[in-house]
Simulated assay, not measured.
Amino acid sequence: MTKSIKIIVLYLLFVCHVSCTQHQLEGKITKVNINDLKGATTHGPVGITRNIIQDKKGMMWMASFRGVFKYDGTFFTNMSKTLTSSRFYSILEDTKGNLWFGTVGTDASGVYRYDGKSFENFTTAQGLLNNEVSSIYEDENGTFWFGVSGGFSFFDGSSFQNFIIDENGIHEDKTGKIFVKRQSFKHTVNSILKDDKGILWIATGDKTYQYNQEKATVMTHDETPFYNVRVLMKDSNGSIWLGGPHGLWRCQNNAFSNFSKTIVSSIVEDANGAIWIGSAKNAVKPKWDLSQLRSNAVRTEYSKGVTIPNLPMIFGVTASRDGNIWLATFEGVFRYDGKKMKSFNKTK
């Protein structure tokens, strides 16, 4: 593959969607011999890893195109190896400690719930709008919102309520309609959350909406809509951050502020109130950086902090409780400990 073709492929993936000291993760983690784990390795998933989180026990979990991986501080284990060949994309730990994993691609198989012992699968057969699940969100009532190709599904634990996104905006479907094929990228939900007023924010491949009581409002700044927002994040002050091709934005008290004009794919707030972003300087020859915005004491103003340049395409960022920053990238998993960036790719 020539260099120019590789750059084009990397960009299309985004639009459509070295060493350091080992740190022990928090939590009561059972230490096991690698021979006791089938398929356990000291390297992370190979290739595209879309999202990464830390669970309540301190384990790191990764949604990758090669499966769901768990990292216990020593070994990586592919937890879905015998489950499905689908590409995993989205991930969430709910308030009860269950883990949810969404799949995408032509062989997408909906969303899986893992209770620590077994996986349970939810697909269009159970009422999910589409089997391509690009985002997962749990609201304050303990119910779930699944962003899919063509709209989103509300799940109360027993049944689905579906909402379709098309050229006319958002409308609830009460006919039981499902999409068996991938819908337009414009109508795919990239990210979803609720603000402190209980209003749902939905970022799609096209516009970003606020949705409340059957009314959809297109979010704009200076009468310009926010197009193709890739990630929404609510910080500890209740402000909403938006990242996408048009940069990094914050909505605070209904006022928008811009912090960066680079392409932003991922946002996370750490325990100290700093905002970390994965971004690229341009779309033609993207060079991806991990950047930090330091906050003041009341977390209302920010200044530039550390920047780590020349990274693979960044899809997801999370802050673990030991202060490390973890990256899900085009080339697997990385960890930044405040001094050095470590790759868990076996080729490094």
Rank of each mutant, 00 (worst) to 15 (best):
T2W: 13
T2N: 15
K3V: 14
K3G: 11
L13A: 08
S19T: 13
S19E: 09
C20A: 13
D36V: 09
G39T: 03
H43K: 10
T49Y: 02
T49D: 02
R50G: 07
Q54H: 04
K56G: 07
S64Q: 05
Y71F: 11
N78R: 08
N78P: 06
Y89A: 08
G102V: 12
G105F: 10
G105K: 07
D107E: 13
S109M: 15
Y114N: 05
Y114H: 07
G116K: 06
K117Q: 10
Q126C: 09
L128G: 08
S135Q: 07
N141I: 04
F152G: 03
F163P: 03
I165A: 01
N168E: 10
G169N: 00
I170D: 01
D173F: 09
Q183G: 12
K186G: 12
G198H: 01
L200Y: 05
I202M: 02
A203M: 03
T204L: 01
G205K: 01
D206T: 05
Q210L: 09
Q210T: 13
Q213V: 11
P225A: 05
W241N: 00
P245I: 02
H246Q: 14
G247M: 04
A255V: 15
N258H: 07
T262V: 13
T262Y: 15
S265V: 00
G273E: 00
W288T: 00
D289F: 13
L290D: 00
S295Y: 01
N296Y: 04
V298L: 13
P312Q: 01
F315Y: 11
G316R: 01
I325S: 01
F330I: 07
V333R: 01
M341E: 02
N345F: 09
K346Y: 15
K346P: 14
